[in-house]
Design a binder for these strands. Structure first.
Length: 422
RNA sequence: GGAGGGGUGGCCGAGCGGUCUAAGGCGCACGCCUGGAGAGCGUGUAGACGGUGAUGAAUCGUCUCGCGGGUUCGAAUCCCGCCCCCUCCGCCA
């Protein structure tokens, strides 16, 4: 979310950013409302000051036994004026909020401009896609052939976009979760968190899912939202707080189920477990000082990449174009893993620098050391990694001609020494 | 789910319709004192928004006593709704 104060001083930059996102300029409309609001605010404060003064006079007069009827009449009149001024100020503020709450973050300068993913830019590649001397199978064929991946029963239980994993694959999923958590906590200094999976709407607003993207979320009868990513609870951990500068950066990691309605994805990735209503994901969140967020973004992406390196999976890193970025992001790196059956790279992680955008929504700030005043923190989030898709990548990249598959060395300690699935 | 109690500043805690511009204490910071430290004494001790001013220093106003409404000339204080915490009972992994 953007501050009115910032838009006032940076109207052109604001509009330019919006246009880069393919949106229309808004500063003129917002600033006109802002001028109205400030005028209304000033009127409101003046009437309030007058009202307070009268109330005190009445108190003093009563004490000294003077007549107060005249003053009371004046007070009643002041009160009416105050109510009218307040209603006016509130009306204008509501109009401003409605616009502001729906404005996405502005892209960083170095984000390539474009309407969609075709404008994304590949930054680097790691590893070589294995050359198969047989036609590689898709993960769902491998999983079903092994009898360890059951879409039919999942559909009977829950409908489409669900899966049942069995035996070695269920174990593999658990191993991936433990492996990633260990890596991020032991080697990269993240604090492991086990957060709630159901959150209230304030939390979903803070990270930017609401008010615009409620359609993508599952909602309980009790009014909770199921988290679409642990980014929501992890980032909102600092909502409403004033942190000490010395406490930053904060780094959180959690492995959680994620729930997505996939409302706008009908017909896309309908086969296999690429796109599910429920999936496991290890999420990284950092809370930093403004001057540290860019470096933290690179660091976080490197942490996610390290998972793929250790799992011996070929990948590439792309920077998303202005048209492909999410609502809250100022810059996003996607990590895409090689999927032999599709002959292409598919997203397995998305690391975003949100700048102060989410912090302003959830009122998370920090106190400057030695100085005075507070500033909004910067927030970052990234998958490290999506576990369902990592499992897919392992099945496909490690498959053998005999129909079985080897397992990456790094995971074996988490699999009780299991070396292959056959 | 039922019954009751409660949410006040960094923390504890008083206030329960009219200088509350929130007592007092603790903590913290600075100063005095000291050879140094402690004790003691003094001073200070939040955030948000708006105005004046150069987006600095400063200064004025408004808001914030869990959140939102209401009553009243006036609300931390009274009323209603919501959220959260605690105690007891019931249920429960």
């Amino acid at each position: 979310m953007f501050e009115l104060r910032w838009i006032r001083d940076n109207g052109e930059e604001f509009d330019r950013g919006l246009r880069r996102r393919g949106l229309k300029a808004l500063s003129a409309e917002i600033l006109a409302l802002d001028r109205e609001w400030r005028a209304a605010q000033t009127r409101l404060e003046e009437t309030r000051a007058r009202q307070k003064r009268l109330a005190k006079e009445i108190g003093a007069a009563r004490k000294s036994g003077e007549a107060i009827a005249g003053l009371q009449a004046e007070g009643a009149e002041a009160k009416e004026e105050e109510s009218a001024a307040e209603a006016e100020a509130q009306r204008i503020k509501a109009a401003i909020d409605e616009i502001l709450w729906g404005v996405p973050n502005l892209p960083a300068e170095d984000v390539p401009e474009g309407a969609d993913e075709s404008a994304n830019r590949v930054l680097r590649r790691y590893g070589e896609p294995a050359a198969f001397d047989f036609p590689p199978e898709s993960h769902e064929r491998i999983g079903e052939r092994l009898g360890l991946m059951d879409f039919a029963r999942a559909a009977r239980l829950s409908g489409s976009r669900f899966v049942v994993l069995k035996g070695a694959l269920a174990r593999l999923e658990r191993a991936l979760s433990a492996f990633m958590l260990d890596l991020h906590t032991r080697e990269f200094g993240y604090l492991e968190i086990s957060p709630p999976l159901l959150v209230r709407d304030e939390a979903a607003f803070g990270t930017g899912q609401l008010p615009k993207f409620g359609e993508d979320l599952f909602r309980t009868t009790g009014g909770h939202y199921l988290i679409p990513t642990a980014e929501v609870p992890l980032t909102n951990l600092v909502a409403g707080e004033i942190l000490e500068e010395s406490a930053l950066p904060l780094r959180f990691v959690a492995s959680t189920p994620c729930f997505r309605s996939e409302a706008g994805a009908a017909g896309r990735d309908t086969r296999g477990m690429i796109r599910q209503h429920q999936f496991l994901k290890v999420e990284l969140v950092s809370i930093t000082r403004p001057e540290d967020s860019e470096a933290e973004h690179e660091r976080m992406t490197a942490c996610a990449e390290e998972v793929l390196k250790r799992l011996e999976l070929p990948y590439r890193v792309v920077v998303l174009s202005t048209g492909d970025m999410g609502f809250a992001a100022k810059k996003t790196y996607d990590i895409e893993v090689w999927l032999p059956s599709q002959g292409s790279y598919r997203e397995i992680s998305s690391c975003s620098d949100c700048g102060p955008f989410q912090a302003l929504r959830m009122k998370a700030r920090y106190r400057l050391e030695g100085g005075k005043g507070t500033r909004p923190v910067h927030t970052l989030n990234g998958s490290g990694l999506a576990i369902g898709r990592t499992l897919i990548a392992i099945l496909e990249n490690f498959q053998r001609r005999d129909g079985g598959l080897a397992l990456p060395q790094a995971l074996r300690p988490y699999l009780g020494g299991m070396e292959e699935i056959a």
